[in-house]
Design a binder for these strands. Structure first.
Lengths: 154, 154
DNA sequence: CCATCATGTAATATCAATAGTTACATGAGA
DNA sequence: TCTCATGTAACTATTGATATTACATGATGG
């Protein structure tokens, strides 16, 4: 999973899980996400601790969704991931006593906060159920079935 | 200058230059920004090519502002820097054929674009002149003069 | 039980992006 | 023509994130 795509990747994984009746192993998810099983476990561990997914060990084990898709928004997932910085632009803090820096930071911070608030509210508007519905609409349009393995063939 | 603070750092430099009557050397700016002169030159070179600053070689040389502070917005500078990604969250593109990924990306892209547009318009609203005025207001409030060197003493 | 499967997790390695450094060329003044 | 300052290429260092390895824990099925 490449940089900066954690939220996107996790949503992808969750929707794929939603299509599966049985637990999905980290290995299967890793293959689909083109990454390593350990990376999947690391990321999913956070979601599990916050009650979004469950994990089971042993035969037939793996990951399952713990909540209704309609009850989870993209913002929920974003926050469950530890709220990685949404905005790539940060403030300098080298010379906090410098009045120029204070003026610059004040202006930038205001603009960033506004944008971040808008983004979060947009994310809050979209539930996993809505994404899933969108997916199924696309699926019907294409007129084919869906299998995790074939959807990510190389 | 640490990561992700390019815009902030450049604005800082520009405002400091505005306070100076004579050209400021890369070395002086580097000291103030706690970085290396070559880094300053690299970044400023882009701004010079786009007409925001001028550079002069030889004795008494250095960097000067080429435009009125009132004519330059934060968005102008942001764009002059090569429009570094504002949003730290990107879309996955590993499996563009996967319908799940398409659904996820569609939702995220919409939200991000909205937020980015808002951020850009906020940056466009603020001119360097306004930042400078803000700085001078803070300066008056503190009741002291301003010198580049002392403002960044360690 | 014990072999196997799967997660849990620490430790380590790899990788890419950015920043910093060195070195030397170019041009402007004094 | 000596010095100062930018211009720039090449290289190194640092950092943050991801990937990998290795091993522990627990569940299941024979």
């Amino acid at each position: 999973m490449r940089r900066g795509s954690r939220l996107s990747g996790v949503l992808h994984v969750l929707l794929h899980m939603a299509e599966q009746d049985e637990p999905v192993t980290s290995e299967a998810l890793a293959k689909a996400m083109d990454t390593n099983p350990v990376v999947i476990r690391r990321v999913m561990a956070g979601l599990r601790d916050q009650g979004y997914v469950r994990s089971e060990k042993g035969h037939g084990g793996g990951w399952t969704l713990a909540r209704d898709l309609a009850d989870v928004s993209l913002r929920d997932i974003y926050e469950a991931l530890g709220q990685p910085a949404l905005l790539a632009v940060g403030n300098r803090t080298e010379a906090p006593g410098c009045l120029v820096e204070q003026a610059v930071n004040a202006a930038l911070t205001r603009a960033f906060n506004d944008a971040e608030a808008l983004l979060l509210s947009r994310l809050a508007d979209v539930t996993l159920a809505r994404l899933s519905a969108d997916f199924h609409k696309r699926l019907a349009g294409r007129g084919k079935g869906h299998r995790l393995e074939t959807a990510h063939a190389k």
